[in-house]
Amino acid sequence: MLDTGETAPDMTLPMATPEAAAAKPRGEYRTADVERFELSETLADGPVTLVTIPGVYSQGCTEELCTIADRHTDLGELPGQVYALSADTPWSQLAFIDEYDISYPLLSGFNSDVLRQLGVRRPDGILQGIATRTAFVIGPDRDVAYTWEADDSLVPDFDAVTDAVAAAETD
């Protein structure tokens, strides 16, 4: 897993947004409903909080993503943006956003090397290839300002994330 002070890889990924999820009924999403996320461009607007999850629709991930959605208003007052990343396809992410009223974008690591580059890809076992549960705050220079890896909790310490975003913005 990337550590504080390391440089995050630049990434271009498919992105499922709340706006696209709301625009069509579930099950009718098409490629045109998937947007493009580029970390280097997004960082121009401030730090990025990136949460990695094993997958949408699993019990723990549903709880985690909904908890983050509940706190998104608080996090939304900070500079930068919040994203969640999983190995799921963007179409399943769009359906999840719609079903659970998720207020922030989900990034698809499907068929991408980004989970390995971040050091969060499960290397073996029946769920090989999915992400472990982590969080990063990435500053505008792509330096990692904060890391968290799940142990007993499904969600990172929001006060620590808030502090890291504020610090990354001033650097």
Rank of each mutant, 00 (worst) to 15 (best):
F37K: 06
I97S: 02
I126A: 14
G46E: 05
P9R: 07
L13A: 05
R116F: 06
S108D: 07
M1Q: 12
D101C: 10
S58C: 08
T17M: 06
D163C: 02
D3E: 14
E77R: 13
T42C: 10
V56N: 00
G80S: 04
G119Q: 04
A160Y: 09
F158I: 09
E41Q: 15
A20V: 08
Y100E: 13
V56M: 01
V51F: 11
A32Q: 10
G80M: 08
A150C: 12
Q117H: 11
D163W: 02
F37M: 03
G46H: 04
R36C: 13
A20D: 10
D159L: 11
V161C: 10
A8M: 10
A44C: 08
L13E: 08
I126R: 13
Q128R: 14
A87S: 11
S92C: 11
A87G: 09
Y57E: 08
D88T: 07
T134G: 05
P25N: 15
T62W: 09
Y57M: 12
D171M: 00
Q128G: 08
E99V: 03
Q117L: 15
A16P: 05
I138D: 00
D141A: 11
Q59S: 14
R122D: 02
T42I: 01
D10S: 14
T162F: 01
T12E: 15
V137C: 02
L107V: 13
T89H: 08
D141E: 14
T17P: 02
Q128C: 11
Y57C: 05
A131F: 10
D157Q: 12
R122Q: 02
T147V: 14
T170P: 05
V82M: 03
